[in-house]
C-alpha cells in the first residue's frame, strides 16, 4: 500500500458544481509529485482535503493505512505540513522565532526542546540570523522559508507546497526550489502544486488536473513526449519548450535550426 491513497474522491462547495470528480491517486513515501493544473482546476481544494481542512463529499483519503475522518484528522495533520501561496497570510508569530514555534506549541512540545529545534531548523533554511525579526522586516521568500522551518520542526512526513513560489520574485523562487530539492534528498515526500510547467519538471511524477478531474498521471519523461497534453489542460508552455517542440515537429536540420533561432531572436 502506498503512503497516501486517495480513492474515488468527490468534492463540491455549497454550490451544485462538482469541484473535484472521482480523484484516484497514490503517493509513495519519499516521492516528489507535481500537481499541475490551470487556475480553478481544483488544486488548492485537493490540498485542503488532504490535510482535512475540508471533508470529502464522497470517497476516502487514507494515510499510512489510516482513513481521514473527524476522529483521525488531528493525528493525520501531524504527518502533513502545507505551505500556502501568500507568505503574508500564514505568518502567525510576532517574530520569526514565535512563528517557527507555533506548530510545535500546538503539539505541546516542551520549551527547551522547541528552542533547540527552532535554532536547528532556522539554520537549515538559512534564517538563523533573523530569529528576532518581525514579518514586516522580511521578504516574501524569507517568509516562505520560515513557513518551511515551522513545518520541519513539527517533523511531518509530507510537505505540500500550494503555489508557494507564485508570489515570489524569480531569484527567491529559484532559491526556494533549491531548499525543496534538499528536503526531497533527505527523504521527505513532496507534493508540489503549481501551474508552472517548468517548476513541475523537478518532480518524479506529474499529475495534470483539468476542470476537477485527473487528466494525466505519469512520469515526467512521459509527459514531456506529449506537449499537446499541456495545451489540452489549458497550461502555457514555457518559451524554451515551445521552441523545442516546434522544431521537432517540423523535423528540421541543424542548419535550419540556426536560421530559426536567428529569426526568433530578431523578432524579439
Amino acid at each position: 500500500m502506498a503512503y497516501l491513497d486517495i480513492e474515488h474522491l468527490h468534492f463540491q462547495y455549497s454550490s451544485k458544481r462538482m469541484v473535484l470528480k472521482d480523484i484516484n491517486l497514490s503517493i509513495n513515501k519519499g516521492e516528489w509529485i507535481a500537481i499541475l493544473g490551470h487556475n480553478g482546476s481544483g488544486k488548492s481544494t485537493l490540498a485542503k482535503l488532504i490535510v482535512g481542512l475540508l471533508s470529502p463529499k464522497e470517497g476516502s483519503i487514507i494515510i499510512e493505512g489510516q482513513k481521514l475522518s473527524d476522529e483521525t484528522v488531528y493525528d493525520i495533520r501531524k504527518k502533513i505540513g502545507i505551505v500556502f501561496q501568500n507568505p503574508d497570510n500564514q505568518f502567525v508569530g510576532v517574530t520569526v522565532r514565535d512563528d517557527i514555534a507555533f506548530g510545535m506549541e500546538n503539539l505541546q512540545i516542551p520549551a527547551t526542546e522547541m528552542l533547540e529545534k527552532i535554532d536547528f531548523y532556522a539554520q537549515k533554511v538559512g534564517m538563523e540570523q533573523f530569529l528576532d525579526k518581525e514579518p514586516s522586516q522580511l521578504s516574501g521568500g524569507q517568509k516562505q522559508r520560515i513557513a518551511i522551518a515551522g513545518i520541519l520542526a513539527m517533523q511531518t512526513d509530507i510537505i505540500i507546497f500550494d503555489e508557494a513560489t507564485s508570489m515570489l520574485d524569480p531569484g527567491s523562487r529559484a532559491e526556494l526550489m533549491e531548499y525543496i530539492k534538499e528536503l526531497h534528498r533527505e527523504g521527505l515526500t513532496i507534493i508540489m502544486i503549481t501551474h508552472d510547467i517548468e517548476e513541475a519538471l523537478f518532480a518524479d511524477r506529474m499529475i495534470i488536473l483539468k476542470s476537477g478531474e485527473i487528466y494525466q498521471d505519469c512520469e515526467i519523461s512521459v509527459a514531456l513526449r506529449h506537449p499537446e497534453w499541456f495545451e489540452e489542460a489549458y497550461l502555457e508552455l514555457p518559451t524554451a519548450m515551445r521552441i523545442y517542440y516546434d522544431l521537432r515537429q517540423d523535423g528540421e536540420t541543424y542548419q535550419e535550426l540556426e536560421e530559426y533561432l536567428w529569426e526568433f531572436s530578431l523578432k524579439k
Partner: peptide
C-alpha cells in the same frame, strides 16, 4: 480573505481552539 487563509494555516499547523498549548518561553 486573509483571515480565512490564516485560519487554514493555523489549523494545518495543528492549532485547535481552546486546547492546551506549550510555550517557547516558560
Amino acid at each position: 480573505k486573509r483571515s480565512e487563509d490564516l485560519a487554514d494555516a493555523m489549523e494545518s499547523r495543528n492549532f485547535v481552539p481552546g486546547r492546551e498549548r506549550t510555550r517557547i518561553y516558560d
